[in-house]
Structure formats: structure tokens, C-alpha cells
Design a binder for these strands. Structure first.
Lengths: 146, 146
DNA sequence: ACATTGCTGATCAAATTAATCGAGATAGCT
DNA sequence: AGCTATCTCGATTAATTTGATCAGCAATGT
């Protein structure tokens, strides 16, 4: 239970944008489709923009669109933006892990690292292209061939 | 960063007990060797006892000892005692997952489940026998052959 | 009895999470 | 120029979780 709502919401928003691919979507629209409180999304989207994942346009007829092809955005990337290092515990991060003060060599660390690596592996190979296809494939196809 | 200190401390305490195998260790001793604040451990150990993982004896010459062979205690078990269901997000627990309200089928859920399963697999196959061997093998041998 | 140890529940401070809100900036339209 | 729809940014807040500490009680060996 370590993915925060914020991260979850960000992923959902990106999923919506990935399904619509190049479309320019208003905050309001994203919020509705992703089922995210708009006032919260209001602080999430700028963060995604800051990280370079989306672009925005202001004024009426403004909105958000992806800044990269969905195939180039990994879940891994998004999680790190909002939650920092992916690791189950501070002594098992890939960079600058916190040192363990136990007398006996802490063999737990090794297992936490296994968890970390397995997690990262999955998040790295999961792109929003795959997610969009899985989620909206049918729905998107329906629109395309309409 | 989702393993809490409490869980971490509990694992470390069990690791110390596993290295000493059948010995009866005082709270104080466990606290020192595991580098856990004794006042905190004071509330952790009873929880482990409640879950049946350790036994305790009171009075002078009291202390704690394992209630099972280290090979029969999995990391998975300990994590669940202190943190409940192992899942990165509430919509991906194995029992009674929280339903997702997104319009489009939430394909993220599938990936969170992958993370969950990979994590559980690792935690289930890691026993304290393995951890003790990895941690204290050398040190324990040293004591044994002294 | 008394010293030593575990047991229990209350309490607490700090951090994190999950929002909400209002004022400001920007761009398009008339 | 002025109006309006939209994104932007920062402050604030309530609730929850985390990480501890402590006092007092219970049991037990000497």
C-alpha cells in the first residue's frame, strides 16, 4: 500500500492522455475521465509538466497533451517523480542507501533489494503505450472505425 | 519506502532470535543486537507473541525465544502482521480489492498486481533460516567452534 | 518480600497524505 | 481594450500514520 493517491492519480491522468494520444484535453475533462478531484489534479499536472512528461497551453482552448509518445513514458518514471527512489526501505535504495547499524550483518537488506529490483523491472518495462492499449484498445478502435 | 520501522525492527528482532536459534534472549539483549529502541521493541514483541511467532517467559531469567524453527517463519508472514495485505495499492490486494471508478478500464491495476505478486513471491520464499545463515553464518560458526 | 523481567495502555510529537481555495498569469475572442 | 476560460502557484488545513516514550501492573525466581 505504498503507491500514494497522488501517484495513482498522475498515472490515471497520463493513461487518459495516452488513450487520446495527441489530443489537447482540459483539466476538467481529464479529471472527469480519470475520476480525480480537479482541485487535486490542479497541483499534479504542473508537476508532470515540470518533469517534461506533458505540455500545457493556457487561455481558453487550453489544456494538456503528452510531450512524448506513450511508448516512451514508463510507469517507473512517474512513480519516481512523486515518490522518489523505488525501494521498500531506506537501506535498499540504489543510490546512497541508508546504512544499517545492526551488529550482525543485516541479511534482510539483500531481500529488500530483491523486492526493489523486481519492482523496478516491472515498472520499467511497463509503458503507457501498453497501458493504453490494454485499457482503451477496444474503445479506441471503436472510435477510430466509426 | 513502504516497510515501516516497526516492521523492520520486528524482522531484525526475529533475525537475532533466529541466529541464536533456541536461546532465551532478554528484551534488552535483543534491542541492543538489533539496534532497536527498547521502548519501541516493548510493544513489538508482544505483537509477535500474539501472532504465535515467539514465546516469552517472565520474571528474572525471563526473555523471548522463537516458537517455530526459523525455516518455518517467512518474511511474508511478518510483513503481514504489521502492515496487513501486501500490495502497492488498495485496488490490487488479493482479497477484496478496492474497486476502481475510472471510466476506461483501469489497466494500471494489472501492473500493480504484477508488482504485488513479484513481491509476495520473494517474501514467501525467504525464511529466517536463510536470513540467519546469510547474516550470522560466519559469526555463528565462530562461536560454535570456539 | 523483593528484585527482575515482561505486559499493557495511554499519550505525544512529527511527518505525511489528501485535499481545498484564492489570487494571479496567459491567451483567445469580440 | 476588455472579458472570459483556462492554467499556475502558494498557502492552508484536517485527518491519519508513524515512531516513539513512559508509568504502572503482572508474574516469577531467589
Amino acid at each position: 500500500m505504498w503507491i500514494t493517491k497522488k501517484t495513482d492519480y498522475a498515472c490515471r491522468a497520463l493513461l487518459v492522455l495516452s488513450i487520446e494520444s495527441d489530443a489537447l484535453l482540459k483539466l476538467q475533462e481529464i479529471a472527469t475521465r480519470a475520476q480525480v478531484p480537479i482541485s487535486f489534479l490542479e497541483q499534479i499536472m504542473p508537476q508532470l509538466r515540470g518533469a517534461g512528461l506533458v505540455r500545457s497551453e493556457r487561455g481558453p482552448s487550453g489544456g494538456y497533451r503528452l510531450n512524448h509518445a506513450p511508448a516512451e513514458i514508463t510507469l517507473d518514471r512517474v512513480v519516481r517523480i512523486f515518490q522518489g527512489p523505488v525501494a521498500p526501505i531506506a537501506c535498499a535504495t540504489r543510490n546512497a542507501p541508508e546504512s544499517c547499524l545492526m551488529e550482525v550483518g543485516c541479511s534482510l537488506q539483500e531481500t529488500w533489494q530483491e523486492v526493489r529490483d523486481a519492482t523496478i523491472e516491472i515498472l520499467e518495462r511497463t509503458t503507457f503505450a501498453v497501458l493504453a492499449e490494454r485499457a482503451g484498445g477496444r474503445w479506441l478502435a471503436g472510435v477510430g472505425t466509426d
